[in-house]
């Protein structure tokens, strides 16, 4: 087990395209860090640079205290779980697990011991002698993790390991990965484009956009205080409403409506309101937002009301039993009001 440190790590491809811009990041020993972002944000490239599958154009990657820029993947003491599992199709599950150890010259009885142990942890003991093609998606996923576990590496690297599973299995495996990591305490870096996966798994998550870090923080920090409109829109489901508004006199104004915004400087802003933070209030309340309802999505636990406020589209979450008219009168807590610079999208205050 080890800490991993990235010191202004960058990746520029031969064609001159920069996929990752000088990223600084310190991952503590035993931490579960999730890299999240839309496709093309450089998260996989970053992971592959840590794994040693991509060369590092600038900066340094340290695993423990060792700079590993020039070290072969096998000698970096990491294990990786791939999106398509990358199990060796012609080898049995047992051989798949043992292959890396065999190449390292681990003695036979030690290999057998570790394989048995990993099989017990992951409950794959029943099909150690089967070929990967005879396994279901979830079982293959376990075997892929088993291959990482038997190595007893300094760090696990996960590259979107759950993307190939169906929704139900994904939730189940997500829970298992979380428990497994907590139990083994191995430093883990996990790449995903699914914000829900990121929120549920991470000790800390790193939101990437265009090869740069937008925000680093615990899931709750990122959810409660998104550093930019990008993070605000990316984390949380349904996404945060982002509205063009103006601040004057300590209130953020949106057409005729206004919400308290203590301490904000006057000027144009982007107002962020989470759907779940919008509450109904009595009609005619001072400064309330008037929402024209367009349509309603029933989710069972709640309903999502889609509509417009002052011509800008807004989603708000309402209890299922609520009776809705054509217009809703909405307000929000001052603490739930997020303000972002209208030009740069950076968080204000």
């Amino acid at each position: 087990m080890a800490a991993i440190t990235l010191e202004s790590v960058g990746k520029t491809y031969a064609g001159g395209v920069t996929a990752v811009h000088a990223i600084d990041l310190a991952i503590a020993d035993g931490e579960f860090l999730v890299l999240v972002g839309p496709s093309g944000c450089g998260k996989s490239t970053l992971l592959r640079m840590i794994a040693g599958l991509e060369t590092i154009s600038s900066g340094a990657v340290k695993i423990g205290n060792r700079v590993v820029n020039q070290v072969e993947p096998a000698e970096r003491d990491i294990a990786m779980v791939f999106q398509n599992y990358a199990l060796y199709p012609h080898m049995s599950v047992r051989e798949n697990l043992a292959y890396g150890l065999k190449n390292r010259g681990v003695p036979k009885d030690e290999i057998a011991r570790r394989v048995a142990e990993a099989a017990k942890i992951l409950e794959i003991g029943g099909f150690l002698d089967r070929k990967p093609r005879a396994l279901s998606g979830g079982q293959r996923q376990r075997v892929a993790m088993g291959r990482a576990i038997v190595r007893e590496p300094a760090a696990f690297l996960f590259d979107e390991p759950l993307s190939n599973l169906d929704a139900k299995l994904r939730v189940q495996m997500r829970g298992e990965i979380k428990q497994l990591q907590a139990r083994l305490g191995t430093t883990s870096i996990y790449v995903t484009h699914d914000q829900l996966e990121a929120m549920t798994l991470a000790h800390r998550l790193v939101v990437l956009n265009g090869g740069r870090i937008e925000q680093v923080g615990t899931p709750l920090e990122v959810y409660r205080k998104p550093a930019s409109t990008f993070v605000a829109a990316f984390i949380g489901s349904p996404a945060m409403n982002l509205l063009q508004a103006e601040v004057s006199g300590g209130r953020v104004r949106l057409g005729g409506a206004s919400l308290p915004a203590p301490g904000a400087a006057d000027g144009k802003v982007t107002l962020g309101l989470r759907p779940e933070d919008l509450q109904r209030t009595r009609p005619g309340a001072e400064g309330a937002l008037l929402m024209n309802v367009a349509y309603v999505e029933e989710l069972g636990a709640q309903r999502l009301v889609h509509g417009t406020v002052g011509g800008q589209s807004v989603v708000c979450a309402q209890p299922v039993e609520s009776d809705l008219g054509d217009t809703l009168t909405l307000t929000a807590d001052p603490a739930a009001v997020h303000l972002f610079d209208a030009a740069s999208g950076k968080r204000l205050g």
Binding site: G52, F82, Y99
Partner: peptide
């Protein structure tokens, strides 16, 4: 043959010739 297989083998410590023979 998926590229990940080669990458998995690299991480598993298989050099080019070992990858050729074993996989």
């Amino acid at each position: 043959i998926p590229e990940e297989l080669m990458e998995a083998a690299r991480i598993d410590g298989a050099g080019p010739m070992k990858f050729f023979w074993d996989i």
